[in-house]
């Protein structure tokens, strides 16, 4: 089992997504929540950072936070899985520990 990392800040505002992806081990997972969901959008200056990391890290994004911000699923980087709060709980249970990049 590996860690699941949560990122709750926009990558255009803070360095948390960068730091998370620098330190996230191969085989770990990243869940984008709150303003962190902006990091899941394709065609941004941060998209490549996420796309490159996807070869070794599984990416999830919280659907309710996408909807609240008017981000439709067709705007997302392909391969990022949209999840709900119940899945959030399952993901935490399935990983060894959780690290929140605040």
């Amino acid at each position: 089992m590996s860690l699941i990392h949560t990122v709750n800040k926009s990558p255009f505002d803070r360095n948390t997504l960068d730091s998370c992806l620098r330190l996230a081990a191969k085989g770990s997972s990243v869940l984008l929540i709150e303003d962190g969901v902006y990091g899941a959008i394709k065609g941004t200056e941060k998209s490549d950072l996420v796309t490159n990391a996807m070869s070794s890290i599984a990416f999830y994004v919280l659907g309710p936070d996408l909807q609240a911000r008017g981000v439709s699923s067709d705007k997302l980087i392909s391969g990022i899985k949209i999840v709900g709060y119940g899945d959030f709980v399952d993901l935490v249970a399935q990983h060894s520990a959780t690290q929140a990049w605040l």
């Binding site: 590996s2 860690l3 330190l23 081990a25 770990s28 060894s96 520990a97 959780t98 690290q99 605040l102």
Partner: peptide, 18 residues
């Protein structure tokens, strides 16, 4: 190093961040 820190992180049972 980043890699070493990453490995240490992976070994933890509980990670506190504030």
């Amino acid at each position: 190093s980043t890699k070493e820190m990453s490995d240490i992180l992976e070994q933890q049972d509980v990670v506190f961040s504030f």
